[in-house]
Design a protein around this nucleic acid. Sequence first.
RNA 1: GGCCCCAUCAUCUAAUGGUUAGGAUAGCGCCCUUUCACGGCGUCAAUACGAGUUCGAAUCUCGUUGGGGUCACCA
Length: 483
Amino acid sequence: MEKIRVRFAPSPTGYLHVGGLRTALYNFLFARRNNGKFILRIEDTDRNRYVEGAVENLISALKWSGLEFDEGPVAGGNFGPYMQSERLDIYQEHVKELIKNGSAYYCFCTPERLEKLKEEQQKQKLPQAKYDKQCLTLSKNEIETNIRNNVPFVIRLNVEPNKKIIFDDIVRGKVEFESNNIDDQVLIKSDGYPTYHLANVVDDHLMQISHVIRGEEWLSSTPKHVILYDAFKWERPTFAHLPLLLNPDRSKLSKRQGDVAVEDYRVKGFLKEALVNFVALLGWNAGDDKEFYNMNELIDSFSLERVNKSGAVFDLEKLNWLNAEHLRRKTQEEILALLKDELKNSEFSHFSFSDEYLVQIISAMKERVSFVKEFITKSPYFFDPPKFYEEAAVQKNWKDDTGSQLKILRDEFAALADPSKEGFEHALASTAEKLGIGKGKLIHPLRLSVSGMSTGPGVFDIVMILGKEETLKRIDTALEKIK
RNA sequence: GGCCCCAUCAUCUAAUGGUUAGGAUAGCGCCCUUUCACGGCGUCAAUACGAGUUCGAAUCUCGUUGGGGUCACCA
């Protein structure tokens, strides 16, 4: 069997798009599953699009997601360089071959003429604007004179008319195009840089890429690539065009309708495991009901044959759920580390808490949070006394005699020799009995006093974690503040 | 508009000629719990439409409709 080599070839736009993450992931999974190599190649042939630090961002986002590449910029490899801007001479050299065999030609047409041509074609209501191959008729002499006189030029692909371009795609099956519908694509721009079409074909061949796995937006330019492979007399790679990731309105996932950068999701507190798991399931499934996957499980069960054809809406609700699932299955130590990081960036960064204390909070809150930061936002009272008391809860649970009853409970707590969860619980029960009232009459005001809120873990867990002293202090404060 | 791709619950999807069309998320309800979650149970909800092929079609074929992608000296 041939050696499996796949690549993820983003252009350095400044961030990693979640659609790009999905493409990279499928490439990565396919490579790992088949003992192949996963290569990162940067497609930076557009000088106008250069973004400072983009490559570094891309690499760090990939790394954060757990997608380690075997060859690429920084990492190196035997097929470099992996930045297309450093391979300009390679493209120049190869395009000469195409000119020699008639598959490509110099074009000296000015942008103005091209513009006029397009206008005319539109006026004639031609189904499609195409270059008219005028420069194909230039003589060798004319071409040489133009070049000597520094007339700007591009090099175009010479598409033969009346041909059927057919290729196989793992996801789509047989795909067919008419060469008459394909424009004489520019291969080398007037600045000497290659266009994507030339560069990706030359590089994929030279880097011995076996499978081209990329988004569906490339499907309609694939015939151009196929023509190039044929013109070079190179073997074509196997193609697999992945379904698009969609906005809720089913258009291509875009910035305008929400977050699209992996970085955005990281900052929002999503776990990389959840994001990877989620994105893997957008367009692929193993054929069973399994939805929770870690990376190794994905590698074990992934196959291109089971990739869907139709686009998938990026549904935040399900990502939220998956994040909670992944969080709950983490060990206490893992969550502790994450929580400490989160605390450093929170309003409580200047306080310090012992690991034992934080671990207790984790076990009390674990089933109640979907995100690590919610340990803080949903139970701030573990980190600082309540600053205010939830108005609706005060209305509902703080009656005229509540203050005096709570005062009695407070004194019972103060006298407690055993400030354990059970100790508090027994004290409250006997106080309620003594007063001849239901336990709820004490439980709800107690919760409100120590937490300021009406929701959260069991009250006895809260007071146990807070400890006797702190609990008494908070009850006293509440007694004063709530009348 | 030309070309190409696609079409199962709101969403992600399973079912590759024979299922009461299954699961998950979200929603709703009940149970558990003097809170909130978790969990459990239940419920709502889909084969776009029309022809064919076949004993039998979500599944194969054709058409219609709808959606998307792409038509640069961007990738």
